[in-house]
Amino acid sequence: MTKNMPKPKVAFFSFTCCEGCQLQVLSCEDELVDILNLIEIVNFREAIDEKRDDYDIAFIEGSVSRQHEIEEVKKIREKANVVVALGACSSTGGLNCLKNKFPMEEVKKVVYGEKSKYYKYFDTIPARPLDAVIPVDYYLHGCPITKSEFLNVLKALLTGKRPDMPNYPVCVDCKMTGNICVFEKGKTCMGPVTRAGCDAICVTYGAVCWGCRGTVDNPNTESHEETLRIYGLTADDLVRSFDLYGGWNKYGGSK
């Protein structure tokens, strides 16, 4: 018997990303009826026409990579009681932060074409995770997010409890699943320093962990660099492995 609350109003927003995380949400077809019994969706460009601003919970996908996006997410923060970063781009900055290695002028030239005299006028800033701009209450990691984790966060919010966010590495998920360790097979992966919660889906299906969920709170990065070196990675490979989803931590918004 909790306090009788009306259905929470939920909005989904999308910034710089591939929108794959929203697609994961939309792929909850079997659960959709139950979900709509629990919440009211008032803003979700990819799914509905309605656009209202009276939301309680905002799921924000994508990283912030343009000046005006900063203002937009700030507005969302003001309106929402709870802000959830949806997916890697939003929670850790994701792949987008790879561009932060380079000066923005150069990035623009490459993307929009040096020959175009207009490239200068495109607005782009170093890509950043949501929490570099506004306070974030909860995080849904992954590129893309997993459906089950999205549903768990939703249920936790409705129960009033803090959603569980694992602070252990993907190795745990691999052992739980019964996978043979990628390293045992002579390959390498980012699992030992990467935050779990994905059920080690990539390894389970024969790939390796790329580290899309960001690192655990206290990763032993030095050990991992050493391990990767022992398994034959070059200095360049190493940088690439850590940069792929760790660009924000490494390059920040400095350039």
Binding site: M1, T2, G160, K161
Partner: peptide, 16 residues
């Protein structure tokens, strides 16, 4: 302090 205690504080008299 935590997850459960948070929820406990939202419960009303009469809850089980």
């Amino acid at each position: 302090v935590g997850s459960l205690t948070n929820v406990l504080h939202t419960l009303l008299k009469g809850s089980t």
